[in-house]
Design a binder for these strands. Structure first.
Length: 256
DNA sequence: ATGGCTACGATCCGTAGA
């Protein structure tokens, strides 16, 4: 059984690549971020033809999350994690007893900015929500673009990035507070190549220089961690023409 | 050097991403 996450940076633009990747990687579940589509424009029929049911929570131009699954999805819930938040960043659903949470965590723009404050408040809301999800669903996976590189080894040039947004102390503390609920970073359950990243800037040939960050993660509760057999970043879609700036992350489990 | 791409919705540039 495979769970995956991919920030596609516009589902409309990336749908052909998504179809190719679904056929090649064959995940049972795929969480998408930055769909940038209103729900009325979500390509539900096209995805069903590829063998996936879907749940979505989107908006025009910005943000937007979705969960694709080969099985029936139940208890689908979108949520605002801070008061009066219009941004579509959180979607949860259950399939075969596994609770899946798809998140597109805020970027934060710059340390100390209004958006940075929003990012930290959003993470506090996420922590509360995940505590409740974990209490209700022991088998929980949280997949998405967290917009935090948890450790220096998740950053191509830690010195250049020191103190910047995505690596600042408060952001990393907010990310670690999620693990403190009883979640583990599936990627770090296994030995990994050095300089493993999931995002590379479009500019300055960053991908070719492997100048990236590991900001897309799959967090799993203890029962799922015990059944997790592999976790990897698939760089192949990043090599395509007109790629997303993010690569998918995929985790394998010994059973549903 | 504070830039560089890409997507979007609205023009022929501004906002946002990370």
């Amino acid at each position: 059984m495979k769970l995956a996450t991919w920030n596609v940076n516009s589902l409309k633009v990336r749908l052909p690549q998504l179809a190719t990747w679904l056929a090649a990687a064959a995940p049972d579940v795929l969480c998408l971020q930055e769909t940038k589509l209103e729900d009325a424009k979500f390509p539900r029929t096209e995805l069903e033809a590829l063998g996936y049911r879907s749940a979505c929570s989107g908006q025009k131009t910005y943000n937007g999350v979705a969960i694709l699954c080969r099985e029936d999805l139940s208890a689908v819930e979108n949520a605002s994690l801070v008061p009066a938040d219009e941004q579509k960043r959180f979607l949860a659903a259950t399939a075969r007893g596994i609770r899946m949470v798809c998140v597109y965590c805020p970027n934060g723009q710059a340390v100390g900015s209004d958006k940075y404050g929003y990012k930290l408040r959003w993470f506090a809301g996420l922590r509360e929500r995940l505590a409740a999800e974990l209490a209700a669903h022991p088998r929980l996976a949280v997949l998405g673009d967290f917009n935090v590189a948890p450790e220096d080894r998740d950053v191509h040039d830690p010195k250049a990035w020191e103190g910047q947004v995505h690596v600042s102390g408060p952001e990393r503390a907010a990310w670690r507070a999620l693990l403190a609920l009883g979640l583990q970073d599936a990627f770090r359950l296994f030995p990994q190549p050095e300089k493993s990243f999931s995002w590379w800037d479009y500019r300055s040939m960053a991908f070719r220089r492997n100048a990236g960050l590991r900001i897309d993660q799959i967090l799993v509760s203890a029962p799922l961690a015990a059944q997790c057999t592999a976790c990897a970043i698939d760089k192949e879609p990043r090599r395509a023409e007109r790629p997303s700036d993010h690569a998918p992350v995929i985790a394998e489990f010994s059973r549903w």
